[in-house]
C-alpha cells in the first residue's frame, strides 16, 4: 500500500511495472506513480496550483505507445505530457482551442491526434491536433427529444450527457458512457459510423435546466470505461440522486462492472464487494485494478473469469 494520501482517486493505469493513479481532490499533486506490484511510491507530478506549469484540474490520464504520460486539465484548457524520468516538469504543454467549452475527457487517436468530448453540445466528439487546434467534429449527442427541459443552448444537454471516453486503436472503436444515465455509445472512428447506442428504456440522463445549467435528477450512471480486444467494460453506480441527497446512499463508486461485446451486446455483469470509481482492466492476466475512495486502502485488485 502506498504511503501517499489519496483523497479521491479516480483514474488508474498500469504500464509494465509502473502504476499511475490520478486523484481529483488532491492536497498537492494530481498524479502519482508507484512501482507495481511492490506499490512503492516513485514520484508525484501535475502539481496543484495556479503557476504556469501547475494544474487546476485533472480529468484523465493516458499512456501512449511510447510510454509517455498525458494529463488533461480542463480548467486550464491544456493537455500535458510528462517523460518517464522527469520528476515534475512537463515536457510538452498543448493549449486547447478556445472554441471548446470545458474539454471533458481525451484519448489518443494516433501519434498526432486526440479525441475529445466537450460541453458545446453541438457534436459528440472532436478531433484535435498536437497544436491543440480543432480538426473536425464527429457525431451528435444521441438524446431522444424530451430527455429533459430544453433551453436554447446546447450546453445543458451536453452537461446532462457528460461522457467518459475510451478509444482502442487496434480496431478503431471508441466508446462513450454517460455519467448521469445508463447509456453506452459505440462509434467506429475509422469509418465514422455509429455501431450502436445501448440505451435501456428510461435510462437516458434525466435533468432539469436552471438558467444555462443542467441539474441531474436521475442517477449516477457510469464512471469509467475500458475498450479491450473483444469486450467493453464499464463501471456502473446506479445510485439515484434522491438516495444520495437523503444520504440513503453514502458510498461513492459503483459495485457493478458491465461487460459488452464490441457491438454492444451484454455479455455479463460482475458484482464487486467494493464500490469503485475507476479501474484498469488487464485482459491478458484477467485482472482488474480498482479504486475505492471509501476505504483507507483505496487500490484493490480482482481477478476475473473469462
Amino acid at each position: 500500500m502506498p504511503d501517499v494520501y489519496l483523497k479521491y482517486p479516480f483514474r488508474v493505469r498500469l504500464n509494465d511495472t509502473s502504476l499511475y493513479v490520478m486523484d481529483i481532490h488532491p492536497i498537492d499533486y494530481y498524479c502519482h506513480e508507484f512501482s507495481y506490484p511492490a506499490m512503492e511510491h516513485k514520484r508525484s507530478f501535475a502539481k496543484r496550483g495556479e503557476a504556469p506549469n501547475e494544474f487546476l484540474d485533472a480529468e484523465n490520464i493516458r499512456l501512449d505507445h511510447q510510454g509517455r504520460f498525458w494529463v488533461l486539465d480542463a480548467n486550464r484548457k491544456k493537455i500535458v505530457h510528462f517523460g518517464k524520468d522527469n520528476t515534475s516538469t512537463p515536457q510538452e504543454t498543448i493549449m486547447l482551442d478556445e472554441a471548446f467549452i470545458r474539454t471533458l475527457d481525451f484519448d489518443l487517436l494516433d501519434d498526432s491526434t486526440f479525441i475529445v468530448p466537450d460541453y458545446t453540445g453541438l457534436h459528440r466528439l472532436s478531433l484535435v491536433n498536437l497544436d491543440g487546434k480543432f480538426v473536425r467534429n464527429l457525431f451528435s449527442i444521441p438524446a431522444s427529444s424530451g430527455g429533459g427541459d430544453m433551453s436554447d443552448s446546447n450546453v445543458p444537454l451536453a452537461q446532462a450527457w457528460r461522457p467518459f471516453l475510451r478509444y482502442n486503436s487496434q480496431h478503431g472503436i471508441a466508446v462513450l458512457v454517460t455519467q448521469l444515465g445508463q447509456v453506452l455509445e459505440i462509434y467506429d472512428i475509422r469509418n465514422e459510423r455509429i455501431v450502436n447506442i445501448v440505451k435501456p428504456i428510461g435510462m437516458e440522463p434525466h435533468f432539469v435546466t436552471k438558467g444555462n445549467y443542467a441539474v441531474p435528477t436521475g442517477i449516477m450512471g457510469y464512471s469509467d470505461i475500458h475498450v479491450g480486444r473483444a469486450h467493453i467494460y464499464a463501471v456502473f453506480w446506479g445510485h439515484s440522486f434522491d438516495d444520495i441527497k437523503r444520504q440513503k446512499q453514502t458510498k461513492e463508486g459503483g459495485r457493478y462492472i458491465h461487460v459488452f461485446d464490441l457491438q454492444g451486446n451484454p455479455i455479463r455483469q460482475y458484482l464487486l464487494d467494493r464500490y469503485i470509481t475507476g479501474f484498469h482492466v488487464d485482459e491478458e492476466n484477467r485482472k482488474i485494478i480498482g479504486l475505492d475512495v471509501n476505504a483507507d486502502q483505496p487500490i484493490v485488485e480482482y481477478t476475473y473469469l473469462p
Binding site: L56, A214, M220, K245
Partner: peptide, 17 residues
C-alpha cells in the same frame, strides 16, 4: 467532494440542486 462537474464552480462535487 465528488466526481460530478459543478456547472458554477471548478470543483467536482457529490451532487447539485
Amino acid at each position: 467532494a465528488g466526481s460530478l462537474d459543478c456547472p458554477v464552480s471548478t470543483i467536482k462535487v457529490q451532487y447539485l440542486f
